[in-house]
């Protein structure tokens, strides 16, 4: 059997194939959030004034802090991949840990932000919220659902990165076989990217 007639390399060895699969998965994630962005645009155009009023209530400082945290985590993620590709395991492990911790910091921040809102009685179906104009009810509905689902993705991302951390320390993921870490990184960047859209839509444009 000559080299040309051989069936293509075993599937798990196909670097490009693994990337194609991951990017296709990211397409589905974008469309999942796409459904909610669609609702956001419909409701925003229906109740521009209410959205304007409601957005004033959100803390730009907390939102900005979380944006900085997530952007930094994307940087540490990219650095960890870079180090692993050049065979430096230790700094890669370090930066992966940093990424997970930054994800955790994001969630702590979110916890306090949501906690304060809930303390003020602003949560779906609460009597305080239902007393507000309709557009504000929807604004907070979108706020909780979209940032909540995003937060869920942060948690999933942290779980994926934790598994990858174990893989890296056990040398299953290493300088020669790093596609799993790259794909994990792509997922993390997507989570970051979605926040980049959520931040202005909820906190900045009032």
């Amino acid at each position: 059997m000559s080299a040309e007639t051989e069936i293509k390399a075993a599937p798990h060895g196909d670097y490009v194939g693994a990337k194609v699969g991951m990017w296709l998965f990211l397409v589905t994630e974008v469309l999942l959030f796409g459904g909610m962005f669609l609702l956001y645009s419909v409701f925003r155009s229906k109740y521009p004034q209410d959205f304007h009023e409601a957005a004033k209530e959100l803390s730009v400082a907390l939102g900005a802090a979380n944006t900085v945290i997530l952007l930094t985590s994307s940087l540490t993620m990219a650095l960890s991949i870079g180090y692993l590709r050049s065979g430096k395991k230790k700094p890669s492990v370090l930066f992966q840990t940093a990424t997970i911790l930054l994800g955790f910091a994001f969630l702590v921040n979110k916890y306090f932000e949501w906690g304060a809102k809930i303390q003020h009685g602003l949560y779906p179906d609460s009597p305080e919220l239902l007393a507000l104009p309709k557009g504000e009810i929807l604004f907070y509905g979108l706020y909780y659902v979209m940032t909540g689902l995003h937060g869920l993705h942060v948690i999933v991302g942290m779980i994926i990165l934790s598994v990858l951390l174990v893989f890296t320390s056990k040398d299953i993921v290493n300088g020669h076989s790093f596609i799993k870490l790259e794909n994990g990184g792509l997922y993390w960047h997507l989570v970051d990217l979605i926040w980049i859209y959520l931040f202005p839509l909820f906190y900045l444009i009032t």
Binding site: L31, G35, M36, P124, D125, L130, K134, G141, V145
Partner: peptide
Amino acid sequence: TPVLAITLLLLIFERSFGVGFFDPAKGGD
């Protein structure tokens, strides 16, 4: 399919938390 996924999730949220996206009484449609 992801569009169905989010639609079904929203329906579950509506039933569990009463968010109001599809309820005219809360401004939804």
